Deep mutational scan, measured.
Amino acid sequence: ETGKELVLALYDYQEKSPREVTMKKGDILTLLNSTNKDWWKVEVNDRQGFVPAAYVKKL
């Protein structure tokens, strides 16, 4: 879809709370919100949640 910003997972991340999502290094995720410098909201496999901003980079 146009207008979607994507990020690349630089590291594996295992969710530690229900508000977070698990990702694997190399995953491409849809970026939903990056206003917080530490935690970015992403969508992966129809799930939305937060990942550490340092673990992903914008494509």
Score class of each variant (00 low, 15 high):
L8K: 07
P18Y: 08
N36W: 07
N36Q: 09
E20Q: 11
D12W: 04
E15T: 08
D46I: 06
Q48C: 11
D46R: 09
Y11A: 10
P52S: 02
D27N: 07
G49S: 02
G26Q: 02
L8H: 04
N45W: 10
V7A: 11
K4D: 07
N36C: 10
T2W: 12
E43I: 09
A54Y: 09
D12V: 02
V44C: 11
F50Y: 15
V21L: 15
K4T: 11
K16T: 13
L31Y: 02
S34A: 12
L8P: 00
E15D: 05
L29W: 03
N36H: 11
T2A: 13
A53S: 14
P52K: 03
K58L: 14
Y13D: 00
D38F: 15
R19I: 12
R47N: 06
K25G: 05
V56C: 15
N36S: 10
W40Y: 07
M23D: 00
V7I: 08
A9P: 00
S17P: 05
F50I: 07
N45D: 13
D46N: 14
Q48H: 08
I28N: 02
P18T: 10
E43L: 09
D12Y: 05
P52D: 02
K16D: 06
S17C: 10
K4L: 13
E15S: 15
P18R: 09
L59V: 10
A53D: 01
A54N: 13
K37G: 09
N33K: 07
G49E: 01
A9S: 05
K4G: 10
D46M: 11
T35E: 14
E1D: 14
A53G: 04
E43V: 10
D12C: 06
E15H: 09
T30Q: 10
N45S: 11
G3T: 13
V7L: 12
N36G: 10
V7C: 13
Y11Q: 13
R19Y: 13
Y11M: 11
M23W: 02
N33S: 13
E20I: 04
E5P: 10
F50C: 12
V21K: 02
L29R: 01
I28D: 00
E20F: 07
R19Q: 12
G26R: 03
D12S: 09
D12K: 03
Y55G: 06
E1H: 13
R47P: 00
L29T: 01
Y55L: 13
L29Q: 01
K41Q: 12
S17T: 12
G26L: 02
K16Q: 14
S34F: 07
M23G: 00
V21E: 00
P18M: 10
S17W: 06
E5G: 10
S34G: 11
L10M: 09
W40F: 07
L29G: 12
V51F: 01
I28P: 02
L10E: 04
K57S: 10
A54H: 12
G3F: 14
S17V: 04
V56I: 08
Q14F: 15
K16P: 04
K57Q: 14
S17K: 07
T22E: 04
N36V: 05
G49M: 05
K16C: 11
K25M: 08
P52I: 03
V56W: 01
N45M: 12
T35M: 10
W39M: 06
E43W: 08
A54E: 09
R19H: 11
E5T: 14
E1C: 15
E5D: 11
K24G: 05
Y11D: 07
K41A: 08
N33I: 08
L8S: 05
L59C: 13
K41Y: 15
A54K: 14
G49N: 01
K24V: 09
D46S: 11
Y11I: 09
W40E: 01
W40R: 01
A9W: 02
T22H: 04
T22A: 07
R19E: 12
Y11T: 08
S34M: 09
Q48Y: 07
R47V: 07
L59N: 03
K4P: 13
D38R: 14
K57C: 15
K37R: 12
L29P: 01
T2M: 13
W40D: 00
V51H: 00
N33C: 12
W40I: 04
L6P: 04
E5V: 15
Y13Q: 00
R47G: 04
S34D: 15
T2R: 10
R19P: 05
L6Q: 10
P52W: 03
E1Q: 14
L59I: 14
V56A: 03
Y55R: 05
A9V: 10
S34L: 04
N45G: 15
P18S: 12
K4M: 11
Q48P: 05
G26W: 07
I28T: 06
V51Y: 01
R19K: 11
P18V: 10
D12F: 04
S34T: 09
G3P: 13
T2H: 14
E5M: 13
I28C: 06
S17Y: 06
D38Q: 12
T35S: 15
V56Y: 02
V44G: 14
L29M: 14
Y55W: 07
V42K: 00
K25F: 05
N33G: 06
R47T: 07
